[in-house]
Computed example of a mutant assay.
Amino acid sequence: MATVIAHRGYAGVAPENTVGAAVRAAAADGTTMIEIDVQPAACGTPVVIHDERLEEPRDGRPLTDASGFVWETDLETLQSARVLGTDETVPTLTEFLEAIPESVGVNVELKTPGTTTLDLRIGESLPEADRDDRREAWTPFVERVVDACGAFDGELLFSSFCEGALAAVREIDPAYAAAPLVFDDLEAGLEIARRYDCEAIHPPRNAIAGTELAETSYVGFPGGKPEIDVLEVAHDEGRTVNVWTVANWHQYDQLAAAGVDGIIADYPRLGVPSSGR
């Protein structure tokens, strides 16, 4: 049975990336790990939030009642910004980790070091000439993230769509587990995993060969038989495969039957036997 990783603290049932969501997710049956997104406030403090702008829409409502780029916003404003119309606010990474038991792991996704998506080289396997530059761009923020994680004794896994972020993690503290997030290029993801000897790889849910999901398009990754059996290749190389993002039990069951190791899910209890869901 595949382990369940709570996507943003089970964003389908709670205000995403908040302390309240984390506490609820940690208490849910079957939760092995909580996946969160981090980026810097204007002062450089790591905060837990997904989108680069505070007012990005979620099903017709803004993510928070504040506006502007996260990394241009002062920490006090972020910590008082209400998430999705609730009383939950944007937490610092330290506050988030302090609120959950160390029996539940945390997958820290490094979203941005404080720059727009145009500069991040998302999903790319970088040519050698660009790697040092991208690592150096991420290093100051990743140092702050690693420092904030230092007091947490539970399992930690760092992931990112950006090679520069993973390169910075490996340089700062190679003892932490790392995983490239795959966007639309499976070979690039595998190359990055090999380059930094990553413990895991995180492909999208329709990239797993032999499933019905592989016939459907998802977030830019086209449907049809995948050109690479990423599950087979990653397992042959000794890497864990955690798939994102699952929305229902039917999708969970397909991927678990295919043999993936972990499933990043929006809803709790998907890994609980069907009689107990």
Rank of each mutant, 00 (worst) to 15 (best):
residue 238 G to S: 09
residue 58 R to G: 07
residue 196 Y to W: 03
residue 28 A to S: 12
residue 59 D to I: 03
residue 131 R to H: 04
residue 147 D to M: 02
residue 147 D to R: 15
residue 273 P to Y: 09
residue 176 Y to L: 04
residue 49 I to H: 07
residue 77 T to C: 03
residue 42 A to W: 13
residue 261 D to W: 05
residue 267 Y to E: 13
residue 254 Q to D: 13
residue 171 E to H: 09
residue 256 A to R: 06
residue 109 E to P: 03
residue 263 I to T: 13
residue 255 L to N: 06
residue 82 R to K: 09
residue 46 P to R: 03
residue 12 G to P: 02
residue 14 A to W: 06
residue 63 L to M: 06
residue 187 E to A: 12
residue 209 A to C: 09
residue 270 L to S: 03
residue 62 P to H: 06
residue 258 A to N: 02
residue 205 R to P: 03
residue 65 D to G: 12
residue 153 D to P: 01
residue 77 T to E: 01
residue 77 T to Y: 10
residue 81 A to D: 08
residue 19 V to P: 08
residue 165 A to T: 03
residue 88 E to K: 00
residue 137 A to T: 12
residue 159 S to K: 02
residue 271 G to H: 07
residue 172 I to H: 07
residue 249 W to G: 12
residue 124 E to A: 13
residue 268 P to W: 01
residue 38 V to F: 04
residue 229 D to V: 10
residue 176 Y to R: 02
residue 93 L to G: 00
residue 251 Q to V: 11
residue 48 V to S: 02
residue 171 E to Y: 05
residue 108 V to G: 00
residue 270 L to G: 11
residue 248 N to M: 10
residue 127 P to G: 15
residue 92 T to P: 03
residue 156 L to A: 01
residue 180 P to Q: 04
residue 127 P to N: 10
residue 171 E to L: 09
residue 187 E to F: 08
residue 204 P to A: 09
residue 71 W to G: 00
residue 60 G to E: 11
residue 40 P to M: 06
residue 242 N to M: 12
residue 275 S to C: 07
residue 114 G to S: 14
residue 104 V to N: 10
residue 217 S to T: 09
residue 269 R to H: 15
residue 96 F to P: 00
residue 228 I to H: 11
residue 101 P to H: 11
residue 178 A to C: 15
residue 91 P to M: 08
residue 194 R to L: 01
residue 268 P to C: 05
residue 271 G to C: 12
residue 70 V to K: 09
residue 261 D to E: 10
residue 20 G to F: 06
residue 29 D to F: 04
residue 151 A to E: 05
residue 251 Q to P: 11
residue 134 R to D: 13
residue 44 G to L: 13
residue 5 I to R: 07
residue 177 A to C: 00
residue 258 A to G: 05
residue 155 E to T: 04
residue 181 L to Y: 03
residue 153 D to H: 06
residue 240 T to P: 04
residue 168 A to P: 00
residue 79 Q to T: 12
residue 5 I to M: 14
residue 204 P to H: 05
residue 271 G to A: 12
residue 174 P to S: 13
residue 78 L to Q: 10
residue 49 I to K: 02
residue 188 A to D: 14
residue 73 T to D: 11
residue 205 R to M: 15
residue 116 T to M: 03
residue 109 E to W: 02
residue 81 A to C: 07
residue 142 V to R: 04
residue 15 P to D: 03
residue 216 T to G: 04
residue 204 P to I: 09
residue 42 A to K: 13
residue 184 D to N: 15
residue 82 R to M: 02
residue 40 P to H: 14
residue 236 D to M: 14
residue 171 E to D: 08
residue 182 V to D: 08
residue 175 A to C: 03
residue 241 V to Q: 01
residue 163 E to G: 06
